[in-house]
Computed example of a mutant assay.
Amino acid sequence: MSDSVPDLQQRKIIHIDMDAFFASVEQRDHPELQGKPVAVGGSSERGVVAAASYEAREFGVRSAMPSVTAKRRCPDLIFVKHRFDVYKQVSRQIREIFRMHSDLVEPLSLDEAYIDVTHDKMGIGNATRIAEMIRAEILKQTQLTASAGVSYNKFIAKIASDQNKPDGMCVIKPHQGAAFVAQLPVRRFFGVGPKTAERMAKLDIHTGADLRAQSEEFLRQHFGKSAGYLFRASRGVDHREVKPNRIRKSVGGERTYGTDLVSEADLQDAMEKIIDIVWNSIEKSEARGRTVTLKAKYADFRQITRSQSRDHYVENKAEFADMGRELLAAIMPVENGVRLLGLTLANLEGAEQANEVADEDAAQPGFDFMQG
């Protein structure tokens, strides 16, 4: 089958994404927070926003943002501590709703999942109707809203779920796929982070249509192993199946700095922020691992990694943080500056059976999340 056309046997894929999940749970459980700008996370100088309500987002507050920056943008911002046990319980409720319609459910995190309803359990046969039923049931059971993307593949369904947020739905039919992708900014493509988008802009590639105009050879020359994916995605093609037992091999993140970090204090401060952000991602993905890896790229682009492993799964944030700090201390002092710093939790529970790793750019400029 040619990669320039969609699958001949179309799948029916729904991507469900809860709206401002952590913050919405807090507003639900604390009515005095409803309608107010809320951030889940620490308000201390070294704190990081784990999630922001839509009221806070209107001021430019985003997840992974330092709390001091968020407070500067929104002086009335209300910080609340995260309650991951509650979020996990709600997530389990939501997944049970998904499984009413299909056993092919692939969770991406606590608040989002793919559902293949090509052969749905209830015999409804209409993916749009099923998505409406799922959203209505989520609201009934949890008093929370969810947005949905409905399409013939995972790539488009995921993007579509973000089109009409919050509490919205977007349906992209097979004959609409290529045109839908053509008008997308390249930053909306999975895996295209700020740095890649910048490189694309220099090549005059700004939209899906611009990507589609390039040959696969050209894309390989400039974007390496991502070329095949970009070539297919720009044509609305994605052959990936919904995998209910998808196994993650690592969870982590890294930050590239505009100014190289040299002093011990600056590096330690940067590490504390990365610990906060990555641990939030670990909690959200429910990952359990034994190995913590530090990645550092120096001003001269030389890159090193240092790892530390336990004979048990890392039990909590304090243990994860201690391992990260020890790894950082081991590369001190830094003479010529660090331009990139990152942490990854690997050797995850069940990962021995995984066959592939997927790297993801975060939606937030300057911070790349990696979930394998």
Rank of each mutant, 00 (worst) to 15 (best):
A209D: 12
P333I: 05
Q183W: 10
E216L: 15
L211G: 00
N355M: 07
A131T: 11
D311C: 15
V186H: 05
Q364G: 03
K284N: 14
D17P: 03
E26G: 14
T259I: 14
G289S: 12
A362C: 11
T196G: 01
R72S: 09
E254R: 02
S226I: 05
R290V: 13
L348W: 07
M133D: 11
A179N: 09
E26F: 14
A363G: 12
G47P: 15
A70V: 12
A351C: 15
Q221M: 14
Y257N: 04
F301V: 06
V86K: 13
I16W: 10
K243R: 13
A50Q: 12
Q268N: 11
G47N: 12
R235E: 02
S4W: 03
L341V: 05
S215M: 14
E132I: 10
I282T: 04
K317W: 11
D85N: 10
D204W: 03
L327R: 01
K225G: 03
A227N: 04
R92H: 10
I277W: 11
D359A: 07
K284L: 08
G224D: 06
D29V: 10
Y313K: 00
P37F: 08
A23W: 13
A318P: 04
Q143P: 00
S263Q: 04
Q268C: 13
D266Q: 12
Y152V: 09
P166N: 09
G366M: 09
V49I: 15
P166Q: 05
N153S: 05
H239E: 02
L340D: 03
D85L: 09
S151N: 02
A23E: 07
D210C: 09
